[in-house]
Design a protein around this nucleic acid. Structure first.
Lengths: 144, 144
DNA sequence: GTTATGTAGTGGGATAAAGTGGGATTACGA
DNA sequence: TCGTAATCCCACTTTATCCCACTACATAAC
């Protein structure tokens, strides 16, 4: 289970080091794609295969699912984690998520999300404001 | 059953010692997350697994549940209790709960809450003020 | 009442590891 | 063939982790 939040730096060579806590679970081969809310998703290869399989089985005739498949599949790249535990972020994904030097890596169960740090902080603030409603939902779900 | 309230110090290395009374029940592996009302929740690993399982099954398509799983999962870290009975609080959680040197640990049945001492005192005062209403509620529920 | 003994909580130093930056070498396209 | 970019490798800096020591308070012994 991937959890936690880390601030790392994306260097001038577009390298981004993964937190050690993620490395074992993530393995050496990963897939990075455009994510939701202007962040990137990074999946371990095994997880990705499951997702790609589901996307393939979507009816291609419908324009909305067609758009969704294109958005995700066309925006995906598979990369290897290098010897120092780093991955390479291609330019077009860097641009998509507006990544600069300071980057947030966030573990969300089966994937790692990659955020511009400012965007992430702002997103968190928005979520915290709705904490009351969240407490209600958590209670309803029997989580807390 | 985790109960009681303790004032401990969070040292310059972000270490926080658990009260001895908690150590047996909590075990060596714990998970700390963002909680409600600006405190942190600390769960024994077994308890956490139950929560995480429920969160995993939430639909990712809806933006509100997406926000919630990010809030909790990305806001969580798993830590081991060290030889001296201490845990490490990562910077981003320290910041979230505004933890300084003086920290309150409060047992709440199956979790331990970690508070800034001032915030805790203030919270208690607020609750005490509404004690009248609370007594009513407890009575209604057949608890007291 | 005073002195041992033990344990909880705290602090600090030494060592190991993680994260980061940069140079050198190799591959690739113009 | 040249210039650019990707890859590998090494080195530095900071942070984390381990281990031991000190203090305070409590209990037990004399």
């Amino acid at each position: 289970m991937l959890i936690g939040e880390y601030l790392h730096t994306l260097d001038s060579k577009k390298r981004l080091s993964l937190p050690t806590k993620y490395r074992r679970e993530v393995g050496r081969k990963v897939v990075i794609t455009r994510g939701l809310d202007q962040c990137l998703f990074m999946f371990p290869l095994a997880t990705w295969k499951g997702i790609a399989g589901k996307l393939e089985s979507l009816p291609f005739g419908q324009s909305d699912t067609r758009g969704m498949s294109r958005f995700i599949l066309a925006g995906a790249v598979d990369t290897e984690v290098d010897g120092a535990g780093r991955i390479l972020i291609p330019e077009f994904l860097k641009e998509f998520a507006d990544l600069r030097s300071r980057v947030i890596l966030a573990g969300v169960s089966d994937r790692v999300e990659i955020w511009n740090d400012k965007t992430w902080e702002e997103y968190k603030r928005r979520i915290e404001k709705s904490a009351e409603g969240m407490a209600q939902t958590l209670g309803d779900l029997g989580i807390l």
